[in-house]
Design a protein around this nucleic acid. Structure first.
Lengths: 212, 212
DNA sequence: GGATGTGAACGACTTCACAGCG
DNA sequence: CGCTGTGAAGTCGTTCACATCC
């Protein structure tokens, strides 16, 4: 909005909380609520209210003293800084149970992640479909991914196939990978990667229980 | 090992990295490697080597100058502080595609997370089985969970059913919940919760791409 | 009174620099 | 020389306290 470039490059800690805010703000928007205060957000998520204000202030002065934040403007502003106020063409490699669970979940589509193609190396799966999406052979990945300008790749393959699938993605201009395989991928510096390792999450849960 | 209580209560940041170390250490163990240095671990994971040494020093002086760390002792020590050098009786509620993906993945079992019972509210599923585990009705949860002393609950139900399923878990002595539903659960202070919200992970990926 | 935004204090985490062992 | 462990310095993130505005 401002003419001056005031993108204060927000910290990763702030960015991950903005996603959380977005979750409860969207919920309240469905409930027809129009305004919200930092105190309510903090209470809901178990955070400090000053922290919420700092995070929200870092994306622009949307709040008004005594009033709070307007819900829809706030949601739009957060979606903008997170980069989800647009559509991301997404491909998925490895159509097992996990992939089917992801495809059934409508939250991705709502947040702009548009899954445009599925790939699998299992010949028995190639040619079948999940919903309205056909499963293609890995050999078709380069051409298909390039023609639909896919930028994000979801990796739901077994561990021993993950690196080669990631390499294939890297070669066709994918800019970010959401990796569910429990391996550490070697990727070019230009490609971002977020790992979802469920064993790690369970270990952290165990740690939190035993440390009490 | 020491007679004095030297549990220096490690930070959450350190704990989450210990899980990462465990991943690559286990990998190297399978490859038959016996020793490892902080530099190699740091390089593999894209971290600073001093940080790796600090983390490892915080769980005991296992390293030897000029030599490195003995792999198997290190793995055992990390598993101990994370609380995964034991078995955790685990129940799962909501047997959809995501649950089937988790059940097929053998990594949980290997790290000591022993899934002992499945529950679902869909009468069509109750009575059927996944692998060797029967799917039970939600009404059986209290008795079953108590008799097998379940301590961890995995929640893979649709969003609108998550809170009530979490309440049911809380009532039977579950100490920690791994929640895959995209909702913020209200839980007693005594119950730990780790949320795996896949939309949040995708948003963080988008953010990392656009911020470059 | 009710709520935001922010300098300043505080605390947590990371990295540097280096002593010391193998 | 290679590598660990750690005081000290530096960086980053959180919380307090309060001026300000509705």
């Amino acid at each position: 909005m401002n003419p001056d470039e005031s993108e204060h490059r927000l910290s990763r800690a702030t960015a991950s909380r903005l996603s959380l805010y977005l979750r409860c703000l969207s919920m309240w928007q469905r409930d027809g609520i129009a305004r919200v205060s930092s105190g309510v957000i903090a209470e809901t998520l178990g955070l400090n209210d000053t922290q919420v204000r700092r995070d929200l202030a870092s994306i622009g002065s949307l709040g008004r003293p005594g009033i709070g934040y307007p819900l829809s403007e706030l949601i739009e502003a957060i979606r903008e800084v997170l980069g989800v106020n647009r559509s991301w063409k997404t491909i998925l490699v490895g159509v097992g149970n996990l992939a089917r669970a992801l495809l059934r979940y409508r939250g991705f589509q709502e947040q702009g992640f548009d899954i445009v193609a599925l790939f699998d190396s299992d010949p028995a799966k190639v040619g079948t479909a999940v919903g309205s999406l056909a499963i293609r052979a890995m050999t078709e990945l380069p051409k298909t991914a390039r023609t639909c300008h896919a930028e994000i790749g979801i990796l739901t393959v077994p561990a021993d196939f993950a690196q080669s699938a990631a390499d294939a993605m890297a070669e066709v201009g994918i800019r970010g990978i959401l990796n569910f395989a429990p391996v550490i991928l070697r990727l070019p510096e230009t490609i971002r990667c977020v790992n979802v390792d469920l064993t790690i999450q369970l270990e952290q849960l165990a740690f939190q229980i035993v440390r009490d």
